[in-house]
Nucleic acid binder design. Sequence first.
DNA 1: TGGTATCGATACTCAAGGTACCGAAATCAG
DNA 2: CTGATTTCGGTACCTTGAGTATCGATACCA
Lengths: 192, 192
Amino acid sequence: MASHTSPRPPGRPRTGVHEVVFAATLSTVEKLGYARATVDRIAAAAGVAKSTVYRRWPSKGALIVDCLLDAFGPAPLEGADRAELLASTTRWIAAKIAEPGVGDAFAGVFSDAVSDPDLREILSTRLQDPYRLALQDALGEPEERVLFFIDVVVGVLLHRMGMTGAPMADADVSALVEMVSAHFADGLDPAR
Amino acid sequence: MASHTSPRPPGRPRTGVHEVVFAATLSTVEKLGYARATVDRIAAAAGVAKSTVYRRWPSKGALIVDCLLDAFGPAPLEGADRAELLASTTRWIAAKIAEPGVGDAFAGVFSDAVSDPDLREILSTRLQDPYRLALQDALGEPEERVLFFIDVVVGVLLHRMGMTGAPMADADVSALVEMVSAHFADGLDPAR
DNA sequence: TGGTATCGATACTCAAGGTACCGAAATCAG
DNA sequence: CTGATTTCGGTACCTTGAGTATCGATACCA
């Protein structure tokens, strides 16, 4: 082996900029909305040149997806039994989407992905798949059923956000929790 | 009274162009996707000048909303009992969204509305409200509960469409019908 | 025949995503 | 200390698409 992966490549090292850009992204989206949160403005808010942003992320969509990954972090997946796990996961997603900027950014990339297959691939692979796999593992459910669960929870929350501009109120989140708990509770009861 | 509303104003009359433009909109969206279905291309496909389109609709979003209203038409609201009405309404929405172009166009405007308050207003007032009111009347449910129903059905279908690029398969539509029927079935059973 | 409003066509403005290029700065090897 | 290498900020640029403005031509009515 000629040289093990050199611990530091030659040239000027990159400055650690991810955190600053993520923070600038969320605050800009919160203040101006998704469409007006241009890459120029985000870079300016982060105190960074636009070219620096595009040196790290290939597109605005990819930046937002990474920003969302950072904002969501790993799924808690807490809960004694299966019903509790479904409820806590639903409430966790609802709470994250309600955080300032997160819901707008999520709805925004999702919207862009509708007519951009490349972005749809990024969204599906980098954002949805990790949580889907973790849920399949924790619930012992097949892929299609977990995908339906995600469609329900995320779809409802984003639709409310998109139609009203504000995150879903607690009472409705509780109704959502109740609905998915009832629907996905089988495997416990004898029926079906 | 000087003159009762004249049956025909002076000048060259407008040509009836709505139907042609609606058809061109759906087929263009179906062929090229929402983002590439520009107003120029839609107008060209309709054999009409772009200025003619903008003489009738103030924005691309308003055009799409009118196109969706035309595609959906009045809600059937059939069903012997309440559960059947919920099920048939859900399946009707799913079938409409699965029609070529309709789902893409719906997801597209919805996406645009996320960061465009004016369009959100149009979407809410012109598209959602009529069906919401009809449902409130048919179901005898309060506004908030019908809004939640719409969030669930439309949100789930659009999320699936947005993530996969294809309308939801029948099996999952049936799961959706089952879920909403169970959740909104109270008022019949003694509980709650 | 004249008045009026729409027609198609074209050219335009503006915003935003993304690319290209520049000299300046940071780091390492020698 | 010097040269090689790479990222830095900054700026100019390209492209696409929404929306506006304008113009001669056309269709209708009185």
